[in-house]
């Protein structure tokens, strides 16, 4: 079998409670793997440790044991091979749309000349339909537009894997649908592997090939793995006509709800 692109092995994370000074375990000995070109979602309740897991994979948070492999090599620090799309966008507020993407392109390709950099920036600005707004600062953009910048910035450096931390949580439902489709389109166009964490069941089913269900913490685990059977291209409209969608959804909700109660 082919080696997985991303492999997380026995990762643990403990935090110290600021008041009681007790250590509590967000998760321990957690493992998963993601294949090349796959779209994998981790689905779990708010606070179960999804961001923590994603940040450990990204290298911006230290784990308390365990290893993350990318392309079979152990990762030791953050890098351009694992671009993160943050829940709160994390755009530089003093830079325009173009400026934010350029920051990334320049960092990824320091040897490029101005023209090549500009060309690449323009391409990705256009890819997310922000050509009109390219000179605006993040504060002048809607949430949806900001997240488009976040996506364009991440795609523009051509990472091995994209790590998406609830990328659509702060975007209104109507815009969300549009950007979700854009994400799928970019994923298919670029062939870049995507690892996403979310608490939105429908989103996970709509977008991913495989969903990993995360139980609520402390001591969260990845309890179940579900392969999403629906053919692509998927649209919300088509999914809701399929009884199998509701069955799957009910199963997931029941699983998470059951764990929640326990």
């Amino acid at each position: 079998m082919k080696m997985p692109l991303l492999k997380v092995e026995g990762v643990s994370k403990y935090f110290q409670d600021p008041r009681s000074k007790n250590e509590f375990c967000v998760f321990s000995d957690l493992s998963l793997s993601v294949k090349e070109k796959e779209f994998v979602a981790v689905l779990g309740h708010s606070g179960c440790g999804k961001s923590t897991l994603l940040n450990i994979i990204a290298g911006i948070e230290k784990s308390n044991g365990g290893v993350v492999f990318l392309d079979g090599r152990q990762t030791v620090k953050p890098g351009l091979d694992r671009m993160v799309v943050f829940q709160n966008f994390a755009l530089m507020p003093w830079l325009s749309v173009q400026g934010n993407i350029k920051l990334a392109v320049k960092a990824a390709y320091p040897e490029w000349d101005k023209a090549s950099i500009k060309q690449r920036v323009d391409k990705y600005v256009e890819m997310v339909n922000l050509t009109e707004a390219r000179n605006k600062k993040p504060a002048e953009l809607s949430g949806g537009m900001r997240q488009r910048v976040g996506l364009a910035r991440a795609f523009s450096v051509n990472p091995r894997i994209m790590l998406l931390d609830e990328p659509f949580a702060q975007i209104d439902a109507l815009t969300r649908g549009v950007i979700q489709q854009e994400l799928v389109r970019m994923w298919e166009e670029t062939g870049i592997t995507i690892f996403m964490v979310t608490h939105d069941v429908d989103e996970a089913i709509l977008l991913s090939d495989r969903v990993l269900l995360m139980t609520p913490g402390p001591g969260a685990t990845l309890a179940e793995e579900i392969t999403i059977p629906f053919a692509r291209p998927r649209t919300r409209d088509r999914l809701v006509e399929d009884p199998a969608f509701f069955k799957l959804r009910d199963r997931i909700v029941a699983f998470l709800g059951h764990r929640q109660a326990a």
């Binding site: 911006i60 953050p78 890098g79 351009l80 993160v84 943050f86 994390a90 530089m92 960092a107 990824a108």
Partner: peptide, 12 residues
């Protein structure tokens, strides 16, 4: 912190 995280991911 998030800006510094971005800088770290971009390996600046």
């Amino acid at each position: 912190k998030e800006y510094l995280n971005v800088a770290a991911i971009l390996q600046m």
